[in-house]
Simulated scan of single mutants.
Amino acid sequence: MKRRDFLALSAAALALPRAGFAATEMTLPDAKLTMLSDGKLTLPGDFVLGGLDAAEAAMIRQKFGLDPDSYTPPCNLTLYQDGTRNVLFDVGAGPDFMPSAGKLDAALDAVGLTHDDITHVVFTHAHPDHLWGLLDDFDDPKFANAEYLIGRAEFDYWLNPNTVHTIGDARASFAVGAARRLGSIAEQLQFIEDGAEPLPGITARLTPGHTPGHMAFVLGGKVLVTGDAISNNHLAFLRPDAPSPSDQDPDLAATTRVALLDQITADELAIAGFHLPGGLGHATREGDSYTYIEG
């Protein structure tokens, strides 16, 4: 019996009834988009707003009803189905990051899919909540039939042995975890450059700042998969130019965010947001400020 078959049988034997985690859906001319919940993160209250002065941070907390002590953003994975391909953007946190995340298996169950049904996995970036769901308990890739795609700059950054020494103590475990997981599939990875169309109907856009090689993806010319280039529904829209400590390079991330929101509103793109309420929404603009509208 293969390792993955053993795991599947063990999971089936021990499984309890689980609630479905499928979120919102959108129909495109040649495909269907489904947002799948991987649960949520549990973070310090100043994780996003820590770069603001106290008065502005307090105003944003009041406006959006944010807890000053705890920040719990949702985690939404994008599933793109065109009748031939089941393309999953990112793979969630898995069991080793936070107990409140790593719920992708239940979400796949809810839409009648298994790991084996995923034909392509496309990574926006290699932070734990987007990557650590890659491997099973035997350190084999969970998505055995999938092709894996990632931006070249993102892969090179995390596989650089100096990254763990330069990323800072708070993110050192991110570097170790990313190198181990990406290294395990290095020979299977296809690398994407800015502006490429790695799959029909999918266009890549380099969106650095949150991580050095972060990528977003335009689907069918209608939807932008933002990853963490736009990572919340409050500061990122209200003050997209404001640096945030949630990004590895806060100033570059702010420049990227401003450009993305300009593109989203100018091209009337829907937003598939990893950490946005409901997963799918759109933006309206008023001057240099934006509003996220769920649905």
Rank of each mutant, 00 (worst) to 15 (best):
residue 293 I to E: 15
residue 115 H to M: 09
residue 241 D to N: 13
residue 166 T to Y: 08
residue 106 A to N: 11
residue 35 M to G: 12
residue 67 D to H: 05
residue 13 A to Q: 13
residue 257 R to N: 04
residue 96 D to P: 01
residue 136 D to V: 00
residue 1 M to D: 12
residue 36 L to W: 07
residue 228 D to H: 13
residue 193 E to G: 15
residue 193 E to F: 05
residue 75 C to E: 15
residue 37 S to P: 04
residue 180 R to K: 15
residue 231 S to P: 06
residue 230 I to T: 03
residue 31 A to G: 09
residue 236 A to C: 14
residue 110 A to C: 15
residue 233 N to Y: 07
residue 254 A to R: 02
residue 276 L to N: 06
residue 210 H to K: 11
residue 242 A to M: 09
residue 173 S to R: 13
residue 50 G to Q: 02
residue 56 E to W: 11
residue 114 T to K: 13
residue 287 G to D: 11
residue 292 Y to G: 01
residue 285 R to N: 11
residue 250 P to W: 07
residue 54 A to K: 13
residue 171 R to F: 12
residue 131 L to C: 01
residue 72 T to I: 09
residue 196 A to K: 02
residue 125 H to V: 01
residue 60 I to M: 08
residue 134 L to T: 04
residue 9 L to C: 12
residue 186 A to F: 04
residue 281 G to H: 10
residue 109 D to M: 06
residue 10 S to F: 15
residue 78 T to W: 04
residue 183 G to S: 06
residue 260 L to F: 00
residue 189 L to K: 04
residue 236 A to R: 02
residue 180 R to I: 08
residue 66 L to H: 02
residue 28 L to F: 02
residue 65 G to W: 07
residue 150 I to K: 06
residue 283 A to Y: 10
residue 74 P to W: 07
residue 198 P to K: 07
residue 34 T to Y: 08
residue 16 L to D: 15
residue 160 N to V: 01
residue 181 R to I: 06
residue 106 A to T: 07
residue 238 L to K: 15
residue 83 G to A: 03
residue 71 Y to V: 06
residue 82 D to F: 01
residue 89 F to L: 11
residue 265 T to W: 03
residue 49 L to G: 02
residue 17 P to V: 07
residue 185 I to K: 04
residue 112 G to K: 08
residue 262 D to P: 03
residue 241 D to K: 14
residue 145 N to V: 00
residue 220 G to K: 00
residue 24 T to H: 13
residue 150 I to V: 11
residue 193 E to P: 09
residue 273 G to I: 00
residue 251 D to A: 15
residue 20 G to Q: 10
residue 200 P to D: 06
residue 276 L to H: 10
residue 275 H to F: 06
residue 82 D to W: 04
residue 23 A to L: 13
residue 257 R to V: 07
residue 140 D to Y: 09
residue 122 V to C: 00
residue 214 H to R: 03
residue 119 T to R: 05
residue 105 D to L: 14
residue 249 D to Q: 12
residue 138 F to L: 11
residue 41 L to T: 10
residue 144 A to I: 10
residue 22 A to F: 08
residue 255 T to A: 14
residue 160 N to F: 05
residue 167 I to H: 05
residue 190 Q to K: 15
residue 191 F to H: 14
residue 74 P to L: 07
residue 105 D to T: 09
residue 252 L to N: 12
residue 137 D to L: 14
residue 239 R to Q: 12
residue 196 A to M: 10
residue 100 S to W: 03
residue 98 M to A: 11
residue 28 L to K: 03
residue 127 H to N: 14
residue 7 L to N: 11
residue 150 I to C: 08
residue 160 N to A: 06
residue 118 I to W: 08
residue 79 L to A: 05
residue 49 L to F: 04
residue 171 R to E: 09
residue 213 G to E: 02
residue 136 D to Q: 05
residue 51 G to D: 05
residue 104 L to H: 01
residue 62 Q to L: 07
residue 239 R to L: 14
residue 96 D to K: 15
residue 250 P to M: 07
residue 32 K to E: 15
residue 74 P to N: 08
residue 153 A to P: 02
residue 287 G to M: 09
residue 138 F to G: 13
residue 190 Q to F: 08
residue 217 F to A: 02
residue 171 R to A: 12
residue 86 N to A: 12
residue 153 A to H: 06
residue 35 M to N: 09
residue 104 L to K: 06
residue 100 S to C: 03
residue 155 F to G: 00
residue 292 Y to V: 00
residue 244 S to V: 00
residue 276 L to P: 04
residue 277 P to D: 12
residue 148 Y to L: 10
residue 150 I to F: 10
